[in-house]
Amino acid sequence: MLELRSITAGYDRRAPVVRGISLTIEPGEAVGLLGPSGCGKSTLARVAALLHRPDSGTLVLDGEPVRGWRHHAPPARRTAIGVVFQQPRLSSDPRLRLADLIAEPLRATGRREEAADRVAELAEPLGLTPDLLRRRPHEVSDGQLQRACLARALVLRPRWLICDEPTAMLDASTTAALVEAIEDYRAATGAGLFAVGHDRTLLRRWCDRTVHWDDLTASSVPPGDRPGSPLAARRPAGAP
């Protein structure tokens, strides 16, 4: 279970981006979080991925409350969560060849000897040919790079996957291939998924349950306190 309990987080304590949000994801469940750009959903994803310490609130991961974020979290906890970021270009070290990029988490956690087999195993279904694996990030397309980034997120066999708009930059066929690869992995391992995005159609088809950002804030912030959201007003009635 991945449980976010009244999380308040942001980059300036006086003006938090995320205010008192609670969200629970059952083991193996796929939850999609919809929200307009800039509302704080990526920040919430970073909190859940142990990459950003919240100002207040608790995160309970597999029954145990999280006490530290980033390097304050033990490596085993960090690697229990695989993260796919929005922009593959920015989330890959420009100096590493794709094969090294994918194998990097194995090397970082002292499992160097598994690297070659595991990379080959992951690359094949994602359509990453040996030729692509020898290239550096600037020599491949966004879609190819994002597939390598997904392979990197899966290489340590995480129990949870957090995807922060992983397909925002990609065309439909690459999106389909990525989603299919994630679903295959989840079917094989029973991993939970927390997907953040603004593509309603995709998230509804992909996830067991989708929640809208405004509904999360509505439940946590007293109605009188709620900031007026023009996008919320335009949302069709009955939408999640």
């Binding site: 970073r46 490596p75 993260v83 970021f85 929005q86 922009q87 920015l90 989330s91 890959s92 956690t109």
Partner: peptide, 22 residues
Amino acid sequence: SRPYIDAAVSGGASRWRVTVRH
């Protein structure tokens, strides 16, 4: 503050490894 450092942290890299490798 680049996302690829986030990715390395998430992949279990220690402070030393993040500094030396990335």
